[in-house]
Design a protein around this nucleic acid. Structure first.
Length: 224
DNA sequence: GGATGATCATAT
DNA sequence: ATATGATCATCC
């Protein structure tokens, strides 16, 4: 695989983004000697990892934005036949212990969502993976109203976790964000807070952005 | 058909 | 086990 350095500045990053826009996953993978799987069934994160390599993302699996120096998080966005996101977007792991004093302003969710480079990717299952094209990236920041909605969701979730209600949180809660399991399987457990304040073993959870949320981002971009 | 809960690959 | 990259599979 070829080695691509981290971009020095936003302009350089966006120039790379523009260069790959319109290209197929097969040609992009080939350009850096990455093998392309038949489908994503066993490699669900393959597209995201390909884009990280192409654009020089550096965070790896560390809990921080992908382009640390630029404060930019990279997210691929699977786009359906109608031109809108078809899946939720994973943000980061949900803290399930030591949640006292946690709030939006000192959260990892805020750090990651303060500036996101969304890369739309064709994801219609009728298109073979190799032939799917990459769209033009969108450098996005939440507006004031959007950020307060995110903050509201986040703080409510943390409140419930602190109160020992983690096991009764479902994906129905939250306007923009939701909490869902994020684990290798249903027997992977982590430490959490029980309903009597005791330590319990529970499923690891992740924060996700609802498709309705990312749909708005795409919609705003299309109509501006 | 869409959303929820479950799962897959990889690195540390 | 925890974190990243996400999509899959099933149920409603």
């Amino acid at each position: 695989m070829s080695l691509i350095n981290a971009p020095d500045n936003v302009e350089q990053l966006m120039q790379r983004v523009q260069t790959i826009a319109g290209m197929t996953l097969a040609s992009l993978a080939h350009s850096i000697n990455v093998e392309i799987p038949e489908n994503l069934r066993r490699e669900k994160g393959w597209v995201g990892q390909l884009l990280e390599k192409l654009l020089g993302a550096t965070a790896g699996n560390k809990p921080e934005p992908d382009f640390v120096g630029l404060g930019i998080e990279l997210k691929t966005l699977p786009i359906d036949a109608r031109g809108y996101p078809s899946e939720s977007t994973y943000v980061c792991v949900v803290p399930l212990t030591h949640t006292e004093g946690l709030h939006w302003d000192n959260s990892l969710v805020k750090a990651k969502l303060s500036q996101v480079l969304w890369i739309p990717i064709e994801a219609d299952k009728r298109i073979p993976l190799a032939q799917r094209r990459v769209g033009m990236g969108i450098l996005w920041q939440p507006d004031t109203d959007t950020e307060s909605k995110l903050a509201c969701d986040y703080d409510e979730f943390i409140d419930r976790i602190t109160l020992g209600e983690v096991e009764s949180i479902t994906a129905h809660q939250g306007e923009c964000l939701q909490i869902r399991p994020k684990a290798a399987n249903s027997s992977a457990l982590t430490k959490g807070i029980g309903d009597e304040g005791q330590s319990i073993k529970t499923l690891p959870r992740g924060f996700y952005l609802r498709p309705s949320f990312t749909r708005q981002i795409i919609h705003q971009w299309k109509t501006k």
